[in-house]
Amino acid sequence: MSTFRNEVNDPAVPDESAIHGIAHGSSAIAVFGQGAAVGLRGDGATWHGVAGISTSTTGGAGVNGTGNVGVQGVGQTWIGVYGETQAPPDAGSSGVLGEGKDGGDGVKGHANGPGKAAVAGFHLSGTGPGIFGRGNPAGRFEGDVVVTGDLILPGADVAEQFDVAERVDDAVGIEPGTVVVLDDEGALAPCERTYDTTVAGVVSGAGDRVPALVLDRREAQGNGAAQRRTVAVVGKVWCRAEASPRPIRVGDLLTTSSVQGHAMAATDRESAFGAVLGKALTPLATGTGLVLTLVGLG
C-alpha cells in the first residue's frame, strides 16, 4: 500500500506532473525516496520513467542536463545504476542508453579494484554477445587482450600489408586476386614470369572472400596510403589464374605465370621449388579466371 498517491489523468493537460517538487537552497532535495526495496521508481508509457535535469556546472545529477554528471548512482555492495527493458525481442530497446555528443563518450566505466572490469557485460541466456560494438573500428583496445574461448573470425585468410613498388603504374594497379612478387626493396609488383621465387602471395579480397586477420596495417612509407596492398599469406583466397599451359585441376600446385598477375599450374616440380604460392581448390578448364586457392608459400 502506498503511503502517498497523487494521480493526474486529465488529457487536456498532457504534460502535468503527478508529483512536482521544488527545493530552494544549495543542498536541498526536491524529491527524495527511500525504501527497503525501491527508493524511487518511475514508469513512463511513452517516454522517460524518471527524468532529471542538472544545470550545475560544477556537479550534480540529472538526465539531459548541462551539469558534469548526467546520472549518478552509488551502490554500497552491488548496483549503482540499474536499467531494465521488457520490450519484445528485436524491438531495439535498451536497458541503459548512453549517447556521447560533442566528442564525449557514450558510456564510460572506471574500476579501481584489482581484477575488476571497468565495463562488464553478461548475456544471461548464453546465446548472445556480452558486449556488442558497431563502428569503424567496432572496438579499440590499448593493452593486452586475453581470450579464454575461441576467437571466431568470419574471414577466409591471414593477410599482411606491403608497400607497392614505385615502378608500378597506378593505371595498371594491383587488384584483389592478383599474384604479386617482391622487388629488391621488398615492395609488391604483379608477377610477370613463370616460376618466380620472389612470389609473395595473392592480393586478398577478391570474390566473396575477405581477410580474417590483417598484419602490419599502416600507412605506406613514401608512396602514400593508397599505395599499399593486403596480401593473403595463409588461408583461402580467390586468385587470378590462366589455363593456357594446361587446365588447372583441384589439388594442383600453383605458381607464377608469364601472364601478368596470374597463376598457373606448376608442372615442373624442380622449377616450382620455392615458387609455389598455393594449391587449387577449384578447377579452371580454359582461358583466364578466378581459382579458389589455399595459399601456402613454398
Rank of each mutant, 00 (worst) to 15 (best):
W78F: 12
W78H: 10
I79G: 00
G80I: 07
P88T: 09
P88S: 12
P89I: 11
D90T: 15
D90W: 09
A91I: 01
S93W: 12
S93R: 14
L97A: 12
G98N: 06
G98T: 05
E99K: 04
G100F: 08
K101R: 12
D102L: 13
G103R: 14
G104F: 08
D105V: 06
G106Q: 04
V107H: 03
V107K: 02
V107S: 05
K108R: 14
K108F: 05
K108L: 10
G109M: 02
N112P: 00
P114S: 14
P114G: 09
P114L: 11
A117N: 11
A118E: 07
V119E: 05
A120D: 09
G121E: 05
G121L: 01
F122K: 03
F122M: 00
F122S: 01
H123D: 15
H123K: 08
L124D: 00
S125V: 00
G126P: 00
T127F: 01
T127V: 03
G130W: 02
G130V: 04
G130F: 02
G133S: 06
G135M: 12
N136E: 08
N136A: 13
N136S: 14
N136Q: 09
P137Q: 09
P137G: 06
G139R: 07
R140C: 03
F141H: 11
F141I: 15
E142W: 01
V145F: 01
V145I: 14
V145P: 01
V146Q: 15
V146D: 13
V147L: 14
V147G: 02
T148N: 10
G149L: 04
G149S: 11
D150G: 05
D150I: 07
I152A: 06
P154H: 05
G155A: 12
D157T: 14
D157M: 12
A159Q: 01
E160Y: 01
E160C: 02
V164A: 07
A165I: 11
E166H: 10
E166F: 13
V168N: 02
V168L: 08
V168C: 05
D169A: 15
D169V: 10
D170Q: 14
V172I: 15
V172E: 12
V172N: 03
G173P: 06
G173K: 06
I174D: 04
I174W: 01
I174C: 08
P176K: 04
P176E: 02
G177R: 10
G177Q: 09
T178Y: 07
T178L: 09
T178W: 05
V179R: 00
V179Y: 01
V179H: 01
V179A: 06
